[in-house]
Amino acid sequence: MSDTGLVNPESPWGEVWVKFKSHKGALIGGTIFISIILLVLLGPMFWDVDPQRLNIREKNQGISFAHPMGTDQLGRDTFAQVLAGGRVSLAVGFTAMLLSLVLGALIGVLAGYFKWLDGLLMRSTDLFLALPLLPLLLVITMLYRDTLRAAFGPETGIFLLIVFVIGITSWMQTARIVRGDVLAIKEREFVQAAKSVGTGSSRIITRHVLPNILSPIMVSATLGIANAIITESALSFLGLGFPSDFPTWGRLLNDATAFITLSPERVIWPGLAISLTVLSVNYLGDGLRDALDPRQRGR
């Protein structure tokens, strides 16, 4: 998007940006979220300590210049581990969100646009909503992780498994919202006009329907990241996520709880990272929802 498009209040995206800016929480949330992403991605350039390097002489240390977040029971630097864990947690969050978004949007559009698919797809959505998700997630990761580990290697296998299970268990809300919007847009005049000149279904969906349901999809995307990060951390916290030598925020928190009486400060850093990320993403989603709501537009 060009710069003039951003400040031009006549353009719809410019208006969204103006509204988004006026939502203080969303602006702060967005800034914090982007800073976390940048810190996690670029941090290792400035803090080039190997997160796996053992240094048993410096174990269980508190906060110092050499170790800004202290060290763990094997003398590994917690700051480096939190940075490395953040990369994995955020990668899981983004990939799982993308998967659930694609699934949800696809099912929602199909159900909303094609009447003959509606009943079947929405019944399956209801069915998925009635599944006990956390128990099932635990069961799936436990039962299938050895197979995937053998097939793709320990880290990629677990990554694929966790992204996959989170993705296929969190698309239902998106599908419902998208279906509702598609049902309404399908009856609008511009879609009818496109139909009457003989435009095919796939072209109507990609050219006319999808651009108009972008806002609910974007809101779902932000909330999806938060949900995926929390779920991954919960699985890792329960010991059913990534292996112990492969840090994620949930895993670090889980490892730290074992030493809670010895070095209680250690649990704070990964927990704080998870909480701050999720909080900022939730505020971002709130602001986006308000900014993209057409009922509030054009005051």
């Binding site: 928190l253 809670i260 649990v267 998870i274 909480s275 999720v278």
Partner: peptide
Amino acid sequence: SVPTFFTGVLMIV
């Protein structure tokens, strides 16, 4: 936003 596994551990601390 703060997951229960963090509030719980924080309370223990």
